[in-house]
Nucleic acid binder design. Sequence first.
DNA 1: GCCGTTTTCGGCCCGACTGTTTTCAGTCG
Length: 577
Amino acid sequence: MNNADIAHAFEELADLLELRGENAFRIRAYRGGAKAILELTEPVADILADPSRELTSFAGIGATLAEKCAVMVAQNCLPQLDELRAKTPPVLLKMTRIPGLGAKKAALLVQELGIESLEELRQACQEGRVQKLKGFAAKTEQQILAGLEIAEAASQRLRIDQGESLVFRLRSHLQACTSIEQLEFAGSFRRGRETVGDIDVLVVSQNANEVMDRLESFPGRVSTTLRGDTKMSIRVDDQFQVDLRVVPAESFGAALQYFTGSKEHNVAIRGRARKLGLTVNEYGVARLDAPEEYIAGRTEEELYAALGLQWIAPELREGRHEIEWAEQGAAPHRLVELGDIVSDLHMHTTATDGGNTLEEMVAAARSRGLLYIAITDHSKRVSMARGLDETRLLAQWQQIDAFNARQSDGFRVLKGIECDILESGPMDLPNEVLAEADWVIASVHYGQKQSRVQITDRILGALRNPHVDIIAHPTGRLLGARPAYDVDLQAVFEAAAEQGKALELNASPRRLDLSEENLLAAVKHGIPIAINTDAHSIEGLDVMRYGVQQGRRAGLEPQQVINTWSLETLLQWLEHE
DNA sequence: GCCGTTTTCGGCCCGACTGTTTTCAGTCG
């Protein structure tokens, strides 16, 4: 089992233990362990095999988890997990997807009524058998019936761009409410996760009722699942959840911090507060001996400062090492920002499957403040996109040379190509042609179902080609649509580092490839990252912001990102690479 | 199950809302 498998096993173990009503801290320990394993930059098996090293030296992995890792590496399975799976009715997990139904109530339903499927649960509700149980009544039964539809709609996560468009709609709707003094979207959206599970809206207002009424009239609302004095939840299209919280102005920073999360980050923050004799909630920071008197909370900076910490960028708040960093003033000095980006090194034109001409793409890039770009149309293997053969490519490059010669402001178009790595291994275009390019991207588009060894060998072969500068979308995943191909990224990272090549962070919200975890690992290998839009039209250039945010989540500083470099720096790097 | 500058046992973040309760447990974020 590899690290991802082990982490996944611990996650599943935590889920199952939770369903069984186990100790919450034990469950947290398994989740923490899963996270720690995912962050390792080398295989667990290698660490176990090295007698001079201990898995327990990593925070979050104790004797028990280390032992279980050893079992999984040796036996390729975890007997305890198999046992737990066998004795946990599969319907339990499905039932907890029903809002308001947690582990305890679900277990009671299974135990008392012998429920084995969501359909049986529906029948039991319709026949009034649920409300006869202790702790249940007519209202709960109705809630379960209504919730069944939500569980079945599977209220999946939205991609960040889909979440963003919902945020725009909510913002413009809520802005009409005059009693709103401040409005911020928090949660995983603010942290810039690649997908969001719900939208969290934080509002400062003297009149919470008016704000809630306004949200109630949101055109996309299908139901209101909860409404109290300061807190409200609605369901919008496809049962997606939106949470609203109204707080006083003096608590805005504390509430924003709390509402932004992540859960793990908040647990760590509050644990740290306790060690300092303080307590933190969404209203502010207070001393443990005077919990009513808030000493900080108007802004996030104030809250973090009260805990002796630098402000932490939302993208880093995942309960990893960000608190240690902030404590030691060792956070990434400055995370990359959209304003740092001066180039885009992967885009297409009408020569292949793009929607705009070279001139139009350049004009759009210029207007977005870029100083240079690379035109990288497809190579001939991508016949559906009318990929370029040698002749057409050389003609395009002549066109680019002529275009560059006409520019007086120093804007430069690099002669590039997104060259396929053929199923059989070699590059789609001959080396003599690639040698003439300024910038060569190598991509896997075909044969994505090949074996791990085959795909890895293809990519390693491309990295060894002296003309290849970078591998695009290194895992080929499409969020929610297509899984990554089976590739040994560890080997890819090592080869890229050794050959001095770059890797792409494809900024398209459908890809965001490399993923955050893989990006973290790549950066630890010292590999330069290019954040590219892979634009197929002028509008496609605007996805850069998603890529930048993903990069920030991995702690990328500007100098680690090729697109922040001046053209001279890039050209120098290309020569020595 | 993890962890340690009040340490190897006894803590472990905190509050809102709901339903079924006569004071609180369960759920959620």
